[in-house]
């Protein structure tokens, strides 16, 4: 399959993503990467599908790539939650009935259907993030980019949102999750570590988390379960990764 998103920054940073990828990007360059994806940069070449990201075709690119930014969590374009969600659909000039039906069905998925007539300033932070993710997903983009917003969700909402994003990926979308919390990387398929304008490692989740020395030296840490597994593997108690508590306990006390 061809790559859908091709990203080049300078000579060292190169990211290629195919459809159905769920990527977590960690490191200290997250903000710079998001800035280049939003506005473009002199040293950057970005291809989305077959179109290059320039100032002139920014409308076409924004139809395919939608962002959920932390700085915009308190910025609302409408005065009710329903207005906020419907803004994108109104910009696409859909009809009135289509908009209301779509909002009803999608907000039931996200469990926002009782909050539709409220003022968005009065919502809790977890509901605000869900509303922002819903309003970005409802225009059916190809790529969704999340900037450090997952840590604001409650625990049950986090599992719900990750289920919905996995569903989105299976239907041919790409999800890019810029995060600082290493525990969230367990929910995705791939990890890319970008530090000081270089790609340090890239690959499937478990193989990147296997490189614990690099991650600890960069200050990124490891998820709790993977850390435990690593220590016990070093002491020789277990052979391979056991990623749930039950399996790990079973493997530890087998001997």
């Amino acid at each position: 399959m061809d790559d859908y998103l091709k990203y080049r920054f300078g000579t060292d940073v190169e990211i290629n993503l195919k459809e159905k990828d769920f990527v977590s990007i960690i490191g200290n360059m997250n903000d710079l990467l998001i800035y280049t994806l939003l506005f473009g940069h002199k040293k950057c070449n970005i291809f989305v599908g077959d179109k290059e990201v320039t100032y002139k075709n920014s409308y076409e690119i924004r139809k395919r790539v939608s962002f959920v930014l932390y700085q915009h969590l308190d910025i609302f374009v409408g005065e009710t939650v329903k207005d906020e969600i419907a803004f994108g659909l109104e910009s696409l000039a859909l009809k009135k009935d289509d908009i209301t039906n779509l909002i009803q069905s999608e907000s039931r998925l996200f469990k926002l259907d009782e909050l539709l007539e409220r003022d968005p300033n009065s919502l809790g932070s977890s509901d605000k993030v869900k509303m922002k993710i819903l309003s970005s997903m409802i225009v059916k983009p190809k790529i969704i980019i999340l900037d450090n917003v997952i840590s604001e969700l409650d625990y049950n909402d986090k599992l719900l949102v990750f289920d919905i994003l996995n569903e989105f990926c299976k239907n041919g979308g790409i999800v890019i999750n810029f995060t600082n919390d290493i525990e969230d990387t367990l929910f995705g398929d791939k990890i890319i570590v970008i530090y000081d304008k270089k790609v340090i490692c890239e690959g499937k989740t478990i193989s990147v988390l296997n490189e614990d020395k690099i991650l600890k030296r960069l200050g990124l840490g490891l998820p709790f379960i993977v850390d435990l597994n690593k220590y016990f593997m070093d002491y020789g108690i277990i052979d391979k990764y056991q990623l749930t508590n039950e399996k790990l306990v079973g493997a530890l006390w087998k001997k």
Binding site: S151, N180, D181, L220
Partner: peptide
């Protein structure tokens, strides 16, 4: 108030 949201391991 919710200071650790978004901090990485070393922070």
């Amino acid at each position: 108030d919710e200071f650790t949201n978004g901090l990485n391991y070393s922070d």
